[in-house]
């Protein structure tokens, strides 16, 4: 990939990644070493290589670890308590996000699917100008 290709339309950049996510596409950069990077990066943290291809990923995975946020950051106080988890996607990539389920209803190994929603008014208030239209990802138990 050339520097000229790193435009806001490319999922190798965050605006491009979130644009695709808004359309329901979870895009990863897959390295020739096999590592799956979400969101995509132009260099692989596993092998150091720069031979990466963009690929749409399945949005399903399982709970790797989880907890409940009881004391939230000021901007999220009205939401607390809420469940957050590290999810291992079927591709092997792991990422953190909220789980749309009570803490007591979640366990390690539970199947989940990544969904996206528009930011709420409150979330838009604390969003930076370039984040205004970025969707929020949430894991739903399936």
């Amino acid at each position: 990939m050339t520097p000229e290709e790193l435009t806001p339309d490319s999922p190798f950049t965050l605006p491009g990644f979130f644009d695709a996510l808004s359309d329901g596409r979870l895009v990863a950069a897959v390295c020739s070493c096999g590592e799956v990077l979400v969101p995509p990066r132009t260099a692989c943290y596993a092998c150091g290589g720069r031979d990466l291809e963009l690929e749409d990923q399945p949005r399903t995975g399982e709970i790797y670890s989880y907890t409940e946020v009881r004391t939230a950051p000021p901007a999220f106080e009205d939401d607390a308590p809420y469940t957050v988890a590290v999810v291992e996607l079927d591709s092997g990539a792991r990422l953190l996000g909220r789980v749309d389920a009570d803490y007591d209803a979640v366990a390690i190994g539970d199947d989940v699917e990544l969904r996206v929603r528009d930011p709420t008014e409150a979330e838009r208030e604390i969003a930076l100008s370039h984040e205004q239209d970025w969707p929020i990802h949430v894991f739903e138990t399936v």
């Binding site: 946020v69 809420y82 990422l95 969003a127 984040e131 929020i136 990802h137």
Partner: peptide
């Protein structure tokens, strides 16, 4: 991009560990 906007906190990050 993904973590702060999910409302995770320091105690909850370590709780995941």
């Amino acid at each position: 991009a993904l973590e702060q906007r999910s409302g995770v906190t320091a105690p909850s990050q370590y709780a995941l560990l």
